[in-house]
Simulated assay, not measured.
Amino acid sequence: MRKSFYQFMKEKSLRYYTECEDIGKDFFTSPELDSIFGHAIGELIFKLIGDYKNPTILELGAGRGTLAYDILSFLKTNHPSFFERIRYLIYDFSPKLRERQRQVLKVFEDKVGWVDELPSFSGLVLSNEFFDCFPVKLVKDETELYLEDGKEVWLPLSDERVKQYMTRLNLRNPGVVYEICLDCVDFLERLSKSLKKGFILTIDYGYLEPPALGTVMGYKGHRLVKNLYSEEVFDITAGVNFRALMEYGKDFGLEVVFFKNQRDFLLFSEVFKRELERLTERQDPESIERLSRIKTMLISMGERFKVLLQRKCSA
């Protein structure tokens, strides 16, 4: 049976997140390393929409619910009047992860809700490792990758939208396999239409210029999957083309506020820097352990992960 790599990746990802009970068994994210990550984001959220009358925070793909918990905890402690005004919505299609999120966020049950469709609101859209889950088309020299009985077959490229995307982003080097994510563009457009006024904060691993070796990978048990085309269930992802999000974002009324590495984003945060200095001065085992995890956030993940903030002005 023949299917495009795009369809294969879409089915694989859907199966993984439908069956997934705990993403932590296959990979870890920055919020799982230390609460200071969520506090830094909470600080930024207050700076951006602290004066909104009835602000909404919409998190896309909330994982275990850890990031939401840390953001809400920070806002409740440091900005109580703002905390009282906000509502926190989660957009996540995994029933098992939703249940885990409800357990983690039980203390905030009167503040948090779950949605199946993108609502119309003013506030901030937040995602951490969400866009990397969208399937990509693999294209090389006017051909697209298909799979037939687990083997690669390259067939003539017929999708006109893919051709337009490649022309717009100047993806024309011969012999290079490009990862084309039209779903990312389409979802960004949906977000922009839902957001009446506010910001979209996207945190993910990705790039501005496509790396020569490609970025599609599979993870299982914190290890890279050697055979991407196997039938086993695992997380399959692709790096986010942030240039595409910025370029197409202009069509959707989104302007770039900043784009930076995760390391630079965190070191710009006053909350993060104060806590880092406090931990550096201490020698107790817990502080040393936290410092080790924060270094992972800054060094191992600091360059690879990017932070994009876009603004949607009111119509």
Rank of each mutant, 00 (worst) to 15 (best):
Y229A: 04
L124Q: 07
L182P: 02
C184F: 00
F121V: 13
V125L: 10
K197L: 01
L171T: 08
K196T: 15
D204F: 00
D110I: 01
S192R: 12
P119K: 05
H222S: 07
L224R: 13
T167N: 11
Q164M: 14
V115H: 09
E142H: 09
S192W: 00
G175C: 13
L157V: 07
Y165D: 00
D141T: 15
L201W: 05
R172T: 14
E129A: 09
I200R: 05
Y229T: 13
K106T: 06
R168Q: 11
Q164N: 15
G218C: 15
D141A: 12
E148G: 10
D116L: 12
G150W: 08
V112W: 00
L118M: 14
D141M: 14
K137D: 11
R161Q: 12
Y165M: 11
E142W: 01
L191F: 03
L118F: 03
L208T: 02
F130D: 01
D204P: 00
V225N: 09
S120D: 06
R172Q: 04
V125A: 09
G221L: 02
L155V: 08
K151T: 14
K111A: 03
G218Q: 08
L145C: 07
L201M: 07
R223T: 11
Y207R: 08
Y229H: 06
L201Y: 03
W154S: 09
V177R: 01
F131S: 02
D132T: 09
Y207M: 06
E189K: 14
Y146E: 08
L147C: 03
K106L: 04
K111R: 14
V153A: 04
P119C: 12
N227T: 09
L213E: 08
G221W: 06
L138I: 09
T167A: 03
K140L: 08
P211D: 00
D204V: 06
R172I: 12
K137Y: 07
L126E: 12
C133V: 14
V177P: 00
I200G: 04
L145Y: 10
K151A: 15
W114L: 08
L169N: 14
E152H: 02
P135M: 06
W114D: 03
H222Q: 10
K151C: 12
G206F: 09
A212E: 13
K163D: 02
L208I: 05
I200K: 06
K140I: 10
L145R: 13
R161V: 15
L171W: 14
L124V: 11
L182N: 04
E142N: 13
Y165T: 05
L138T: 02
T167W: 01
K151F: 14
P119H: 07
T143P: 01
D186A: 15
V177I: 15
F121N: 13
H222N: 05
D110F: 04
G218E: 13
G214K: 14
Y146P: 08
M217H: 08
W154M: 07
P210L: 07
Y146R: 04
S122H: 01
L157S: 09
F199N: 02
D149M: 03
Y165N: 02
V185K: 04
